[in-house]
Write a protein that binds this DNA or RNA. Structure first.
Lengths: 202, 202
DNA sequence: GTCTATACTTGGATAGAC
DNA sequence: GTCTATCCAAGTATAGAC
């Protein structure tokens, strides 16, 4: 972990090329050969540095997941009301859909459905996201007196599932209008419910 | 379409074997060889009867989709209140998760992410489901005065996305508790909102 | 319509020179 | 650490006998 500042190592370049390939060509298109082609390095390097393609895929998932999760954490921490939280989360997610960051997560989840050895590893990497959403919704739900009818953990699972589903359909259709309609509805609902959630500090 | 009553044609057997394979081995495990092995027929028959594997996959998707959609339609038509509708839909979906029927849909959607030629075809087959959900939620939303904040079409897209996401996570985790928690919350929410949706006839 | 045999392709992974 | 060359497995699809 001393390489922090220095220029990119080969290992880094491989991870980045893997992410690019996942975004551009999808999970099934992300073969060792395709990654090497895109990154402009030799295919054998992947196996030298990561052992197997699965391990590279997981390393890439880790990297993008950490990166994005901390962006979401920062944005929600800065938001001062439920409305603002919904607004920032929407903004971030919209960017992710367009730029393909969270997309990588969806591709990996969808893809790992069919690889028994990858599935459990990918699932484990969802937990931080569910935890994060849970933390974010606990207080608002409590204030609105909804925790008993909709426990924060369940709500978090719901949000993550929905996010995942929207992402998949987005990629199949490449039709922004449906997702946009969802974002707009989320904003209206947040504004409608704002009083119930209480507005004093958070 | 005259074969309605007679015993199964080979084509039928192939479609059924394809569905079985999708359920048992997932999308990536559903190769022509695997289907033939499971169905106990020769691999070449698939190509004789369907031309390509993609066409067989779509035929299988059509069959299960029609079958299940009509089951949902019938169940919801029989239900007499919003609570009952939520209860029947939950019951059906729970069965689907366990038996793997709607699962096939999820597998196909996730899998077709990576096959450019399959994606659009699969998407087209989602529309009847979105239409169905839209019809189902329109009246309750109208009555509750929520249609302007959450249009029926958007709500339908949301429900379908959520369903899809839950299905994917279910398959990765094989952990019923999370999905069950969601079902229970749905029931509580339905009961809570029942008065707002009006109780006279439907 | 159904079978065997096989052509062809792609992809993961490794050996071994440098 | 990086390269070339290659092995091997699995898959789609087709040819051609029956």
């Amino acid at each position: 972990m001393i390489e922090a500042v220095a220029e990119q190592t080969t290992k880094d370049r491989i991870v980045e090329a893997c992410l690019e390939t996942l975004k551009e060509e999808g999970f099934a298109g992300t073969s060792a050969r395709a990654i090497a082609r895109r990154g402009g390095f030799n295919q054998a390097l992947i196996f030298y540095h990561f052992g197997t393609l699965n391990d590279l895929l997981l390393a890439a998932l880790d990297r993008t997941s950490e990166r994005r999760l901390s962006a979401y954490r920062a944005a929600l921490a800065a938001a001062e009301s439920v409305e603002e939280k919904v607004a920032s989360a929407t903004r971030l997610y919209r960017d992710d859909l367009a730029s393909g960051h969270v997309t990588v997560v969806s591709e990996m989840i969808a893809g790992s459905l069919s690889r028994p050895d990858l599935g459990p590893e990918v699932v484990a990497r969802m937990d931080p996201w569910i935890d994060f959403v849970e933390e974010s919704v606990r207080e608002p739900l409590d204030r609105a007196g909804l925790s008993s009818v909709l426990p924060p953990r369940t709500a978090a699972f719901m949000v993550v599932s929905l996010t995942l589903g929207v992402n998949l359909l987005w990629h199949l259709e490449r039709d922004q209008t449906k997702a946009e309609a969802l974002f707009e509805a989320a904003g209206r609902i947040a504004r409608m419910l704002a009083p119930a959630f209480g507005g004093s500090d958070g």
